[in-house]
Amino acid sequence: MPAAFFYIFSAITLLFGVMVVVCRNPVASALSLVVSFAGLAALFVSLDAYFIGTIQILVYAGAVMVLFLFIIMLLDIKAEEHRQPNALAIVGGIALAVIFVGQLGYIVSQHEFGNRTTADVPILFDKAAQVQKLETIKSDLRAGVLPDTKLVGQTLFQRYGFQIQLVGALLLAGTVGVVILSKREVK
């Protein structure tokens, strides 16, 4: 069952990932990307990262790609369908990808740590329940449920609070920039 789950969603992810590159219509590319992200989210879930999976959908599929579609439509991009693709770039790109994957294959073959399944590395609820401090997390763990969101939240806000502030500044800068770049002045 888990293996099938993995293979199905990997296939979806990769196939639609390829579609993103292959499709000449940008809308098709964008939608393929959405599906690919959905598959990816499923893979995240299969790795017990519910929160990340949900965020992946919420942010990428729900917001980022809508923005892309919005822009594609706003700019009405169809021009590429009538143009010759750059053969050299395509060959180069594919060659690079093949080299990269080959390299990766070699790397993975060298990576002994990677030869385990999730069953080999089970989540130890009891041990974790003893270590964790927060009561809600403890109770969840005792019940055998992985309080994924709470744990991510705890990590983010207790350990990485400073970095969160930095990201806040980043978003502020981004927002200011977007407003500046797209502001239409009232004459």
Partner: peptide, 23 residues
């Protein structure tokens, strides 16, 4: 790694805006 990444991106994103500032 996280702090490096976040602070690097903070500058980079701000630079995206600044570079393209003259719209």
């Amino acid at each position: 790694l996280i702090t490096i990444f976040v602070s690097l991106e903070l500058t980079t994103v701000s630079f995206y805006v600044l570079v393209a500032y003259m719209r």
